[in-house]
Write a protein that binds this DNA or RNA. Structure first.
Length: 421
RNA sequence: GCGGUUGUGGCGAAGUGGUUAACGCACCGGAUUGUGGUUCCGGCAUUCGUGGGUUCGAGCCCCAUCAACCGCCCCA
């Protein structure tokens, strides 16, 4: 038997309804916030991610699904959404259209070659938004606000919003130097990963879990102490806006995001619900003011976030949130014999044209078994056709909730049903 | 990439070397002729993830392989 590739999943009826529901909520909220959908290809030139996501990141170094096509082009299944959206923004010159900032959203599968575990798939689905063309902290607050609103409107309670500022270029450089100076004397005591991080990206040392109890961690230089006045003011503005929106947050100066393009605002939303396992990050995002230029566009600020649908559904599950997915069928048509079945075929098609959700038996089952099926399908009404009904041009309509059965004339059937579903 | 646990019918799950692989749920059929959700009766795995090996004999032992789950790393 051939079965699905590692780290992928089939989403079957029973679950797919939940996905549809969550997707609908996301789309609706994006429209309320005036974000428009953008759809980009699922694969791109490998170079886009090398430049956009950053050559030093784990994603590019060891997690990309990269392959050569028949013309020997190097292509990569997208590991995240932002690079593609920015590429499209530049290529289609969206910086030139009237409405700025461009507020975009996307929803689709991403691919990373990782060891699967709970909440981490090789193919996973992200909802994301990107706002391009504004460097106003109020739009940072809007992006965060949209994310929080989405979770809360779905019914999640145990949420924790963590924010940080990574500062601008100048802040980061000063901080980087301070980190190197701080950790250099302790280099021998740090784990091998951190020794490498100290060279390539000292910021990441702060994120290390092995060395988190090392004394040098406790008094390590905080980025927030190295922010320029301008960057600091930007961060303060953001906090002011979040306060005004009534959004709770904690500042965590050790919050570091894994992608190279971030600066200024960085944030993550975590679940604090019990039983969530080791992976508690539901979504993350931040500002990426240099990215558009890096990808060949004009100097344009941008901010976005992405959330994992898999983890969102996990969070709903562990918090015991029941999504209002419609489960029951409106009508089930039962026929007693071949002649009645002919009538059933006609009737079912007719009712469907009137937007009534209806089904019938296709296995030639006996009446009793057809009733069982109707029951299992949670049909509200059962329509019964037998010889007598055929003769009199009526159907029996049984309400499965209260058991009451009435004889209904064909010409009255549609309105009769519509009154009861 | 590394470590741990696991893999028996549609699902859950007994079985730890010896004739026909428990049980529960689900499903299908029946309990006098056209009515469901309860009850009763009956049916439902030549086969134990896959491929090798050991043995007179393996679901149970060994090796490999694939997969899932959990953790590390990292992330959404």
């Amino acid at each position: 038997m051939i079965h699905l590739p590692r780290g992928t999943q089939d989403i079957l009826p029973g679950d797919s309804e939940k996905w549809q529901y969550v997707e609908d909520v996301f789309t609706t909220i994006c429209h309320q916030f005036n974000y428009k959908e953008i759809r980009t290809p699922i694969f791109e030139h490998t170079e886009l991610f090398q430049r956009g996501v950053g050559d030093t990141t784990d994603i590019v170094q060891k997690e990309m699904y990269t392959f050569n096509d028949r013309s020997d082009r190097s292509l990569t299944l997208r590991p995240e959404g932002t690079a593609s959206v920015v590429r499209s923004y530049v290529q289609n010159k969206l910086y030139g259209v009237n409405t700025q900032p461009q507020k975009l959203f996307y929803n689709g599968p991403m691919f990373r070659y990782e060891r699967p575990q709970q909440g981490r798939m090789r193919q996973f689905v992200q909802f994301g938004i990107e706002a391009l063309g504004s460097a106003d902290p109020s739009i940072d607050a809007e992006v965060i606000g949209l994310a929080m609103h989405l979770y809360q409107s779905l019914g999640l309670k145990s949420l924790r919003l963590v924010i940080n500022s990574l500062g601008d270029q100048e802040s980061r450089e000063a901080h980087r130097q301070a980190l190197v100076n701080h950790f250099k004397p302790h280099e021998e005591e740090l784990c091998s990963d951190c020794q490498q991080r100290l060279e390539k990206n000292p910021l990441r040392v702060l994120d290390c879990k092995k060395d988190k109890d090392h004394p040098a961690m406790q008094d390590a230089p905080k980025i927030l102490s190295y922010l320029t006045d301008e960057a600091s003011e930007y961060f303060n503005q953001l906090k002011k806006y979040l306060d005004a929106m009534g959004i709770d947050y904690v500042v965590d100066s050790n919050l570091v995001r894994g992608l190279d393009y971030y600066n200024h605002t960085a944030f993550e939303i975590m679940s604090d619900a019990d039983g969530f396992g080791s992976i508690s990050t539901l979504s993350g995002g931040g500002r990426y003011n240099g990215l558009v230029e890096e990808l060949g566009g004009p100097n344009t600020p941008g901010i976005g976030f992405a959330l994992s649908v898999e983890r969102l559904l996990m969070a709903l599950e562990v918090e015991g949130v029941e999504l209002p997915v419609n489960e029951g069928l409106d009508c089930y048509v039962i026929s007693m014999n071949d002649e009645a079945n002919l009538k059933a075929v006609e009737l079912v098609h007719e009712l469907r044209k009137h937007n009534i959700q209806v089904d019938k038996d296709y296995l030639g089952k006996k009446m009793k078994a057809q009733f069982k099926t109707a029951d299992r399908e949670k049909a509200t009404l059962v329509l019964i056709i037998g010889d007598e009904e055929l003769q009199q041009n009526v159907v029996q309509v049984k309400n499965m909730t209260d058991g009451i059965q009435e004889t209904v004339d064909h010409k009255d059937l549609v309105s009769y049903i519509k009154d009861r579903i």
